[in-house]
Amino acid sequence: MRSPRTRGRSGRPLSLLLALLCALRAKVCGASGQFELEILSMQNVNGELQNGNCCGGARNPGDRKCTRDECDTYFKVCLKEYQSRVTAGGPCSFGSGSTPVIGGNTFNLKASRGNDRNRIVLPFSFAWPRSYTLLVEAWDSSNDTVQPDSIIEKASHSGMINPSRQWQTLKQNTGVAHFEYQIRVTCDDYYYGFGCNKFCRPRDDFFGHYACDQNGNKTCMEGWMGPECNRAICRQGCSPKHGSCKLPGDCRCQYGWQGLYCDKCIPHPGCVHGICNEPWQCLCETNWGGQLCDKDLNYCGTHQPCLNGGTCSNTGPDKYQCSCPEGYSGPNCEIA
């Protein structure tokens, strides 16, 4: 077999650049994923090309098998939009790539799955459409700058595939050579959905506090709520009108309100015997008056200043008058 000629994957630097851009600016990249293909086995019993010639040398006159050299087999892949009637021409609109030389006439790579040499990765940054057309071609490398490479066999497949970690196996069982391969579509990290176009990256910072479920939905951490999980859940009972919080379990009062639940107004400074319904009010309790509710309107009842059976009459805020019984006098009937 001729010395292998290595063929790198098509578009790999571009895919790395796209992945970097997506990581830095995830909101700009609407989708991100990759179409993967792995060659599993190849069977070319006679070492022939599609045109019937030998990959190298002439045929044995007896059994008609190619004798001089085995094929240097590598694969090309073209991925494009779905076609009900597949045409070989036209651009590979979803991507293209190739393997290096991975074997001779016949080989089996099932035991070495995950080997990069027999895998082609086609990254995409558009919403995966699920339906596709795939062209797979086996080629013989001439290892010659003058002699062109020659095609051994080709296969085409049109179908639908959803993103999954599971592989789907396909076979080419007609023509001079048979080969088996597997395909799958996977979303990149933080991308979800059938189109790999739903973005969700767990975070716990100013912009949100959430994890992501298997469908890419945000699940808020304990103590947080809202579409972006950036609204803290305040202390139970915290007034929704007069209290708020920036951290879970907190209850910060608005100006003019106080209390554990921010449901108590702050009265006017200096208010003595008054209450409030709104901040800075001083609504006097019964029998109290004045701007600060510090004037006693029922001095008689509060202090009972009249002595010796005198009768007390309220005459104004903090004022009274005693009517003394016979034989007593003085402001409080204290003089006998």
Rank of each mutant, 00 (worst) to 15 (best):
T174A: 07
Q291P: 11
Q172R: 14
G103E: 03
H178Y: 04
I152F: 06
L109V: 14
R2C: 13
T219P: 13
G223S: 01
T286I: 00
L40R: 04
T145I: 03
R25L: 15
S96L: 06
C55F: 08
T186A: 11
C333Y: 04
D263A: 08
Q182K: 03
G290A: 05
C66W: 15
T87P: 15
S41A: 04
N197D: 05
Q50K: 04
Y181C: 09
E228V: 11
A23D: 01
N143K: 05
Q83P: 12
D205H: 13
S313G: 12
E48Q: 04
N115D: 06
K319I: 15
V45M: 10
C271F: 00
F124I: 06
R68H: 07
A336V: 14
G316D: 11
S41T: 04
K246I: 07
F199V: 04
P240T: 01
H273Q: 08
N314H: 05
M225I: 07
C29W: 07
T311S: 11
S141A: 07
G270R: 05
T106A: 06
A155P: 03
G104D: 06
G274C: 00
T302A: 09
C262G: 02
G95A: 10
E70G: 15
V121L: 12
P248R: 15
Q321P: 03
C22W: 04
C78S: 00
Y255C: 12
G327V: 15
C282Y: 01
F75Y: 02
Q214K: 04
T87A: 12
R68C: 12
R59G: 10
C54F: 14
H303N: 07
A19S: 13
V146L: 10
F75S: 05
D294N: 04
S164C: 13
S142N: 04
P317T: 10
C92Y: 05
V101L: 13
C265W: 00
I266N: 05
G30R: 02
N314D: 11
G237C: 06
R165P: 14
R2L: 15
F126Y: 02
T174R: 08
H157N: 08
C253S: 01
C276Y: 03
A19P: 03
D294A: 04
G316R: 10
N51I: 13
G90A: 15
K241Q: 10
V185G: 02
C196S: 01
T315P: 04
G97R: 13
A177G: 12
F75C: 01
P129T: 04
H273P: 01
G274D: 04
L283R: 09
N332H: 11
V185E: 01
Q50L: 07
R117H: 11
S239I: 09
N162S: 08
T219N: 03
K65N: 14
E81K: 11
T6P: 14
N118T: 15
C92S: 02
M42I: 11
N308H: 08
N308Y: 15
P129R: 10
F207S: 07
N314T: 09
G193S: 03
N44I: 14
R184C: 04
D250G: 14
P148S: 12
G249R: 06
K319N: 10
C312F: 00
W257L: 05
K76N: 13
T133A: 02
S158W: 12
F179I: 09
W167L: 01
Q168R: 12
D63Y: 13
N105Y: 06
C312G: 01
K241M: 08
A23T: 15
A211G: 07
E81V: 11
L109I: 06
R5P: 15
Y190S: 09
D294G: 02
E326V: 14
F35V: 03
E38Q: 03
S112T: 11
R201L: 13
R64L: 15
K80T: 15
I275M: 00
C300G: 02
Y320D: 03
D69Y: 11
C271Y: 01
I102F: 09
R85C: 14
E334V: 15
Y74C: 09
C212S: 04
G193D: 08
K218N: 12
D149Y: 12
S41F: 13
D263E: 11
C78R: 00
R119S: 05
R113P: 10
C271R: 00
T169R: 07
A138G: 04
N298T: 02
C234F: 04
H209Q: 03
Y132D: 03
S98C: 04
A23S: 14
G159A: 13
Y299F: 00
A211P: 10
C300F: 00
D296Y: 00
F107C: 04
Y255D: 11
G62V: 15
A31T: 07
R64H: 11
S150N: 07
K65M: 13
Q214P: 14
C220F: 02
K154T: 12
L292V: 04
N53Y: 15
R252S: 06
G193R: 08
K27T: 05
T169S: 11
Y181H: 00
Q254R: 11
L24Q: 03
R68G: 15
G8S: 15
P123S: 05
L170Q: 03
N308D: 12
T106P: 13
G47E: 08
S93T: 13
Q34E: 01
R85S: 08
R231G: 14
R130M: 07
S3T: 15
T186P: 00
T73R: 14
G289R: 04
Q258P: 02
T174P: 15
N46I: 08
G256C: 01
N46D: 03
C251G: 14
I161M: 03
C253F: 00
R203T: 12
N230I: 13
G274V: 00
T133S: 02
P100L: 07
D63N: 04
I152M: 09
